[in-house]
Amino acid sequence: MRNVLREWQAELKYTFTGTRDAVPEWVGRLAEGDDAGYHRPGSAVWAVHGDMPTIVAGIRALLMQALHPGALAGVHDHSRFREDPLGRLAGTIRWIFTVTYGSTEAARAASNWVLRLHEPVRGTYVDGRGAVQPYAANDPDLLRWVHIAFTDAFLSAHKLWGRPIPGGPDAYVREWAQAGTLMGVESPPLSEAQMRAQLDRWYDDGELTADSRVAETVAFIRNPPLHPVLRPGYRVLFAAAVASLEPKYRAMLGLRMPRLGPFPLPVRLATKATLGIVHLALGRMGPSEQAARSRLRRLGYEEPSGA
């Protein structure tokens, strides 16, 4: 069992960070900085992003984001996701954890770095009504879609498999709105109800599509090039992401709830068990949170009781 956990740990670290042994250099820099950052111990953001359901949330976010033809065109036309999917994942994780755990300067720098990478990402796509539309990755509407699909995914997965959120779901949406602002989203939603209403607007207005590109993307997300030791667990987590989707989005993606004949499979229970194994392999506290706590101790920040 110990050897299996060690192999899981190495491959999980490689999947999420691009390295099996050493902590990535950017993680150590989260201990630097002269302020507590936008988010602190005891916050809703720390509670959600420091918990294991984020793995399910990441899969769900990719599935949802694929439904916007502009966002998907940018990925297909300009991203190396087929050749280097783990590199793209590691870059996304770096931004999330820097905004979550870093100083305000680090969070702004990481967001500006992503926006600079987006600058050349431009082209055209066919919208849900069949018209050709221009797109740019930094268009406010596309940035809003990505932000809301992300927020919805992380909140939804945490509500199913996570622990209580300090301040409740609205606190998470309100706090993570800061990340949207850093990425150029104008007036991001500040409550769960606002977020759901804005998300459904794209669906109700017919702006989302499910074409051959979406099917190709879903097939890739269903079966990414992971190490064999991770594949059984990933199948459970993919099923969890599918189960967490609202039925209308699940139908657009051509996905169904997993079943064995006429009987639904116990996805929620299997997911809880799988996330427990991942937690055991990775440890109680990630290196990004450890680095952030080191910075906070240096600055004399007093943690709230129970944090």
Rank of each mutant, 00 (worst) to 15 (best):
95 W>C: 03
258 P>D: 10
255 L>K: 09
272 K>H: 12
158 H>N: 08
233 G>I: 04
56 V>Y: 03
34 D>C: 02
256 R>P: 00
21 D>E: 14
293 R>Q: 13
30 L>A: 06
33 G>C: 08
114 V>Q: 13
306 G>M: 02
133 Q>S: 04
108 R>E: 15
219 A>M: 04
172 Y>G: 05
288 S>V: 02
14 Y>K: 14
225 P>L: 08
175 E>R: 06
281 A>C: 09
35 D>T: 07
306 G>K: 03
289 E>F: 01
235 R>K: 14
168 G>Q: 09
24 P>D: 09
283 G>E: 08
76 H>A: 10
274 T>Y: 02
65 Q>I: 12
220 F>H: 13
81 F>W: 15
115 L>G: 02
146 V>N: 09
280 L>K: 14
172 Y>P: 03
240 A>K: 08
207 E>N: 04
254 G>R: 08
88 R>W: 02
103 S>D: 07
156 S>N: 10
203 Y>S: 08
137 A>N: 04
169 P>T: 06
134 P>S: 14
147 H>D: 09
257 M>P: 00
204 D>L: 14
253 L>K: 06
39 H>P: 02
238 F>S: 06
167 G>V: 02
59 I>V: 15
305 S>L: 09
67 L>H: 06
13 K>I: 01
46 W>L: 06
193 A>M: 03
188 P>K: 12
68 H>Q: 09
256 R>C: 00
105 E>W: 05
120 P>A: 11
11 E>R: 15
29 R>Q: 15
89 L>D: 05
102 G>I: 09
227 H>M: 05
78 H>C: 11
237 L>A: 11
67 L>R: 06
13 K>S: 14
12 L>G: 06
28 G>L: 07
180 G>W: 13
230 L>D: 10
184 G>T: 06
89 L>G: 02
72 L>T: 09
66 A>T: 15
126 V>M: 08
73 A>W: 02
113 W>L: 10
127 D>A: 06
294 S>P: 00
279 H>L: 04
205 D>P: 01
176 W>H: 09
11 E>V: 01
59 I>G: 01
94 R>Q: 15
120 P>M: 10
17 T>P: 02
242 V>K: 11
7 E>V: 14
279 H>F: 00
74 G>I: 03
277 I>E: 05
252 M>W: 11
269 L>T: 14
298 R>W: 01
196 R>F: 01
232 P>N: 12
204 D>E: 15
153 A>Y: 10
250 R>T: 11
26 W>V: 11
111 S>D: 04
49 H>D: 12
171 A>T: 03
35 D>R: 08
191 S>F: 05
152 D>H: 15
60 R>D: 03
21 D>T: 14
8 W>P: 00
178 Q>C: 03
68 H>K: 07
223 N>M: 04
245 L>S: 05
153 A>G: 01
261 G>D: 10
86 L>K: 13
24 P>G: 08
71 A>I: 12
113 W>Y: 10
36 A>R: 11
78 H>A: 15
289 E>N: 05
136 A>M: 07
177 A>Y: 09
39 H>T: 04
38 Y>F: 15
288 S>R: 11
243 A>L: 05
67 L>W: 05
82 R>V: 15
169 P>V: 06
122 R>P: 00
252 M>P: 02
288 S>W: 12
189 P>L: 12
156 S>V: 13
157 A>E: 07
